[in-house]
Design a protein around this nucleic acid. Structure first.
Length: 196
DNA sequence: CGGCCGATCCACT
DNA sequence: GTGGATCGGCCGA
């Protein structure tokens, strides 16, 4: 499991890149599931027009981002999708990384069950709403620690760990972020990272 | 309190 | 490529 020190790194953009190839795991409703992170986006806090925390905006929803790095920021989008983000940096700096894609690893059966509307053969983990649904992550999980054990179980409900396979830098594709046209010039920033 | 909108997904053409 | 689903959050009055 990645340690607290990983999440409090000051550069959210390089941290987003470094999350590629790591394994995102959940143990929710007694079911374990995991996948290798294949797509991320960095959201750079108060100076980033695409961020919910742009301009220092603080609300009950965004308050989670102002907390210590290493917690989950999950919010409802379009009235029906939960989007999972990793909060980074120190208290008071509202940086976050949106997880947009995984390659299913363990618990594929339960993930397909959770995404049962999708016909067989269709992709079911290549978008931020899809991966949260497949992994059982809900916006009510916002604020959960990714590093601290809760109650008697041996791991958090959601955590990230190193994977065996090595990420090769030249297999990483960098583009602008998706769905943030409202952010003006900031929509063009090279803050999206994908594994080929 | 009313109204608008969104870090999306899916079905259909 | 287009449009509908669907509702919490945010803002202005």
């Amino acid at each position: 499991m990645l340690s607290h020190s990983f999440y409090i790194q000051p550069d959210v953009v390089s941290l987003a890149r470094d999350l590629l190839g790591k394994r995102l795991c959940t143990r929710i409703d007694g079911k374990q599931a995991s996948g290798i992170i294949t797509e991320t986006e960095a959201y750079a806090g108060t100076t980033d027009k695409a961020s919910h925390a742009y301009g220092g905006r603080r609300t009950r929803r965004t308050e989670i981002m102002y907390g210590e790095g290493g917690t989950a920021y999950v919010y409802l989008c379009y009235g029906m999708h939960s989007l999972f983000n990793v909060v980074t940096n120190i208290v008071g700096v509202p940086h976050a990384v949106l997880i947009r894609g995984i390659q299913p690893c363990a618990g594929i059966e339960i993930m397909m069950q959770r995404r049962k509307k999708v016909k067989k053969g269709k992709e079911f983990s290549n978008g931020p709403g899809k991966i949260a649904e497949a992994l059982g992550i809900h916006f009510s999980h916002s604020g959960l620690s990714l590093t601290q054990t809760t109650s008697r179980i041996s791991a958090p409900a959601i955590w990230i760990e190193e994977a065996e396979n090595k990420t090769i830098p030249n297999e990483i594709v960098i583009t602008s972020r998706i769905g943030v046209d409202y952010a003006g010039q900031d929509a063009k920033l090279p803050y999206r990272f994908l594994l080929k």
